[in-house]
Each structure stands twice: as structure tokens, then as C-alpha cells.
Write a protein that binds this DNA or RNA. Structure first.
Lengths: 267, 267
DNA sequence: GGGGTATAAATGGTCAGACCATTCAATGGA
DNA sequence: TCCATTGAATGGTCTGACCATTTATACCCC
């Protein structure tokens, strides 16, 4: 019936007020908030407390802090980056696997393709065909430009999401792709025939979208992602370990013997 | 060729070290870190700086801070809830319209229903039937318990996402529901027959999932959400043009309906 | 007069020490 | 034995100071 009472900390109140102002639109993106010393007076808190609040807002991706004269907290326009990071942490902690991500992507891309086929504008088609031509040139340049081909591949997928006109598709798909790329691209196939097959899929997909064939686009996209996933998972299985694995990017964090407590002092 | 050099702030270094220790597994979940005063000595920083770092880690969902004797920063593993929050914030900030949200939800729920039908366990079915019974009792209690019925409705949808066993579905669907609930529920239908129809849909949906009928579950879910959306959009249209219906492309987004608040901003 | 440089002001970043509030466990009394 | 009291440990907040960075302005030289 009742909930546990949790003492509201001062910095949380500050966070809540500024967050609400931003989310409600009272503070527009790009707008600069008053300096810390002014804010501290406005809220009636000390500077360390205010700074804790600003740090939280920064971590939420709502503000960004600039140094120097004329600097200060600036309201930022949000992007999918935060979602991507959060998802990446879950992957690293093995709470989300390659299989989860792959499955989710399959349904998503199918839906995106269908919507894109219904909504695409002439400009969308033009852009997609340009990207397709670019991808093709990378493909024909051989393995040397494999990375560029794969980047173009992702670019096409995101451009299709763009053609739906629905920003949710763009954000979500971008996060999924980014994480697949960052954490699982070691499982990508490099073989020439498979890249070729990939390209052919994309060509057929763009053609279906161009002619407004939603069911066809859906079918092609589903098949495309399904084959892609099957290849990745086969390679993952071949490595003898089940995904997910450690991320590729490491920043050689120095050995911090700090932050480690071996014994629980409370016995 | 080169990237802009960004001066590393002290608190960022502290965050990076502790984050790496947690993500790499050197610090296990549930473990208590040393007290702020000890940590401050270990890292050689001041307490306000250390606290900024802890606040960031807390916001990332990596630690939680407990008060009192024996308290301190405790390692917590972030769960899908963090993704939900981040995505929900992004959706709200992108100022997506009801039409965008509805469209996205339609494809998502269909996919979720199909996966749930393939993967559901006996426990899932039992849970779904229990929730269904609860919803029914709220429904039969009349308009007085309308809110509770709607909450049970959402609960069933999320339980279905749960039955897919894929945490991504849970996070994304929860984000969508949260936004619909918080920002668009003024368009929800309150009429008795419509609630009844809603319930019947759910019953059929759960039945299809229980018998493992993926295509059937997909079809029912799609139809269910579609009708729901149609009702909401009709009501939105009735309220005049204040409600965004089908903005095709809003690259330069105008102010959304909830961007106007007269409340006195303390900033 | 124009352009580049030095200076100053504004602002975030960090530090030090202090005191308050909360929590839990040890202590002591009923 | 049980419960209330008390004190210690810990996070929460405040004050005030100084350093580092950035930008704008004034200045000087050409």
C-alpha cells in the first residue's frame, strides 16, 4: 500500500528540475544555462552539490559542459549514442547475447524495410541508389576495401531506416548496428562470395523499396538479415565459445589495485 | 588524421578505472567498495571530485550508494531497466509523435507475440493466465477500476515480452509503453465496449501464445495494436490539430504539444 | 588601418576541512 | 532474554579558496 520513503537528496532535486525543464522543452537544445555560480545561487545549494547534479545530467546526455569564458552547461540535442552505450554495457556484462541482438534485428529490419517501401520519397531512392553504387565499387575493388564495403552496407541499412521517416527506427537500428559492429564483427564473414551475396540482397531490397513493394521488401530484408545472422552465429560457434565474448576495443586500463577490497570487514 | 585532444578530467579517470574493474569482473556484483574517505586517499583526489565520479557511476547503473555504518558504494550490475530509461528519454526528446510511436509499436508487438508463442514456457503461460484473470476482474468491476484495468493490460503486454526470453524486447517495449502512457494517455478510450474489446484481444492473444501458434499470435497482436492505435488517433484528431498525427518528415521539428508549459521555471 | 599578440575576465576543475544526517551495531539496563 | 540507548562509521552538504582553460578585448607593431 505504501512505498518505502527515501530521503530526497538535494542534488536529485536539482537534477529533477533541470531535467524536467529540458524534457518539457522549456530549455531548448543549444541553450546555455547560467554559470555554476549563478545556478548555485538560484537553487540555493553549494557548488559541489550543484556539480554532482550537473554530472548526472551530463551522464544522462542532457547537457554538455563547456570550459572557458562564455562556457557553462549547454543543453544538448540527444542522439542514439546513449542508448548504444547502455546496451554495450549490458552486452559486455553478458546480459545480452549475440543471439538476442540478432533476433531483435531480424524483426526490426523486416519492419523497417516494409515501412520504407510504403513511405520512400524520390530523394530516398536516389540516395539509396548512390549508396548502392558506392558499395558496389568497394565490393569490386576486392578484399582490400572490405571494411569500406561493410561500412557502406551499414550505411544503406540506416538510410533505409531514414526513409521510413520515423526517428524511432533510426535510433534503435543505429544502436543495434553499432553494437553488432563493436562487439561481434570478428564473426563477420570475409569471404568474397558472401560479400557478393550480401550486396545482391541489398540491391534487391532497394529495388523492392523503390517500387513500393512492402511485402517484398519485408521478405528480402528478413532473409538478408537471417542469412547474415546464420553466418555470424556459425562462426561464433566455430570459435568454440558461445557469444558474447570480450569486446575488441580495449583501452589498456592501468592496473588499478585501488577500488578493490579483498575482505569484508563486517564479520 | 589526428583527433582533438581533450583534457582528461580527474573524475573521469576515476570513473574509468572503477568502471573497467566492474565490467571486467574484478569487482563482483554485491561487493562493497571502500568508503569515500578511503577511496579518496587511494586515488589521491579530493572528496568532491571522488563524489562526482561516484555519481556518474551511479547514473550508469554500475554502483549504488548506501548510507550509514557499513554503507558505501556497492557494485550493482546494470539491468535492462537502464536501457529502458535511456531509450524512453530519447523517444521523449526526439519529440516523436503519437503516430511514430504507434507505428513502431505495431511492428514490435507483432514480433514479440510471435517470438513469445515460439518460446513460451509453462510458467509463462501460467503467469499470463493469472494476469488475464486479474484484468478480467478489473474489467467487470466497471469504470471505477479503469485505471487498474489499463495497468493490467500493460502488464500483460510486458509479460509477453518477458516470455520471449529476449531482454531487448522487454526494454524496448517498456520504453514505448512508458511514453504512450505518460504522454498520450489522454487519448485513451474509456468507453466500456472498447475496454471489453481490448480484453477479448488479449484473451485470444494469450491463447494463441499458449498453443504455440506464432503466426496466429502475430496476427492477433498486430490487429489488437492497430485497433488500439486507430482509437487513440481518432480521439487525437477529435481534439483538434493540437495532436500530431502523421508528420511525414520532421527534420526541423516544431514545438510538440507538450512543449508549452506556463509553470515558472526556476532557471 | 589592419592584423596578430598579449592581457584580463569569466568559467569550469579541483582541493581542503568542517559539520550535519543517517544507519547500524555494540552496550547496558529492565 | 529482550529492548532501548548510545556511539561510531559513513554518506550528504556547505564554505571558501585557488588552479586551468577559454574567449574576448585591448594593444602594439607593421
Amino acid at each position: 500500500m505504501f512505498q518505502t520513503v527515501r530521503p530526497t537528496k538535494v542534488f536529485q532535486d536539482v537534477v529533477a528540475q533541470i531535467e524536467e525543464a529540458i524534457l518539457s522543452g522549456r530549455l531548448a537544445a543549444g541553450e546555455t544555462l547560467p554559470s555554476e555560480r549563478e545556478l548555485k545561487a538560484m537553487f540555493g545549494v553549494s557548488r559541489p552539490t550543484l556539480r554532482e547534479a550537473l554530472r548526472v545530467l551530463e551522464e544522462k546526455g542532457l547537457i554538455e559542459i563547456r570550459l572557458g569564458t562564455g562556457g557553462g552547461p549547454v543543453v544538448t540535442r540527444p542522439d542514439a549514442g546513449r542508448v548504444t552505450e547502455t546496451l554495450a554495457r549490458l552486452i559486455r556484462l553478458q546480459k545480452v547475447s549475440l543471439a538476442h541482438l540478432a533476433e531483435f534485428r531480424e524483426g526490426l529490419e523486416a519492419q523497417v524495410a516494409a515501412q520504407a517501401a510504403r513511405r520512400r520519397s524520390a530523394a530516398d531512392i536516389k540516395r539509396l541508389r548512390a549508396l548502392l553504387a558506392q558499395a558496389r565499387s568497394f565490393l569490386e575493388a576486392g578484399p582490400v576495401r572490405r571494411e569500406e564495403f561493410l561500412a557502406a552496407d551499414r550505411g544503406i541499412h540506416l538510410a533505409i531506416a531514414d526513409a521510413t521517416g520515423n526517428p524511432i527506427y533510426q535510433s534503435v537500428l543505429a544502436s543495434v548496428h553499432e553494437n553488432i559492429h563493436r562487439y561481434y564483427d570478428r564473426f563477420l564473414s570475409m569471404a568474397e562470395p558472401e560479400l557478393r551475396e550480401n550486396y545482391d540482397d541489398l540491391e534487391a531490397l532497394v529495388a523492392a523499396i523503390a517500387r513500393g513493394d512492402a511485402p517484398g521488401a519485408r521478405r528480402i530484408a528478413a532473409g538478408h538479415v537471417m542469412r547474415f545472422n546464420a553466418r555470424m552465429q556459425r562462426r561464433a560457434a566455430d570459435e568454440g565459445r558461445s557469444a558474447p565474448l570480450a569486446p575488441r576495443r580495449r583501452r589498456t586500463a592501468g592496473p588499478p589495485p585501488h577500488a578493490r577490497r579483498n575482505e569484508d570487514p563486517r564479520i
